[in-house]
Amino acid sequence: MAEYERSRTVPAQPEHVFDQAANVAQLDAWLPGGLHVHAQESPSVTVHEDRKDQDTSALLRSDRDQMRIEWGTRERGGYTGWLQVSGIDSGASEVTVHLSFFDDGRDPGERAACDALEDSLRRLEEQVRLRVDNEAG
Rank of each mutant, 00 (worst) to 15 (best):
L59F: 05
A39M: 05
D19I: 01
G72N: 04
T46F: 03
R51P: 11
L59I: 13
G33M: 05
R61A: 11
L31R: 07
E70D: 14
A21Y: 00
G34K: 04
Q40M: 11
S90R: 13
D63T: 13
H36R: 13
E70I: 13
G81F: 00
I69S: 02
E70Y: 02
D53E: 13
R76I: 05
D55V: 11
S86T: 11
A21M: 03
Y79W: 03
T56H: 08
D65L: 08
P32H: 06
D63N: 15
A22T: 06
Q20P: 01
A29Q: 11
E41D: 15
F18M: 10
Q84I: 13
E49Y: 09
L60E: 04
S44W: 05
N23D: 14
S57V: 07
A22L: 05
Q40Y: 03
S57T: 12
A22V: 06
L83A: 03
V24N: 02
D65G: 15
A58H: 07
E75L: 09
Q84P: 01
D89V: 14
L59H: 10
S42R: 12
Q66T: 13
G34W: 02
L27E: 05
S90W: 03
G81V: 00
D89S: 15
E75Y: 03
R51H: 14
L83C: 07
L59S: 10
F18H: 07
H38A: 14
I69V: 14
H48A: 10
Q84D: 10
D19V: 00
G72W: 00
V85E: 01
A29K: 14
R76D: 09
G78K: 00
L60D: 03
G81Q: 00
D28I: 05
H36W: 02
L27H: 06
S44L: 12
S90A: 12
E75M: 09
G78T: 03
Q20S: 12
Q84R: 12
T80K: 08
Q40C: 11
H38I: 09
R76M: 07
Q40F: 01
R61K: 13
A39Y: 03
Q26C: 10
P32D: 03
R74E: 09
I88K: 10
A39V: 08
G87V: 08
I69H: 00
L27R: 05
Q20G: 04
G33C: 04
V45C: 06
A21C: 06
W71C: 01
S86Q: 14
R64A: 15
Q26S: 13
P32E: 04
G81R: 00
T80G: 05
T56K: 12
Y79E: 00
H36D: 08
Q66H: 07
H38P: 04
S62G: 08
D63K: 10
A22F: 02
W82A: 10
S90N: 15
Y79N: 00
I88E: 11
Y79Q: 01
T73I: 04
S42M: 08
H36A: 06
T56S: 12
A21E: 00
G78E: 01
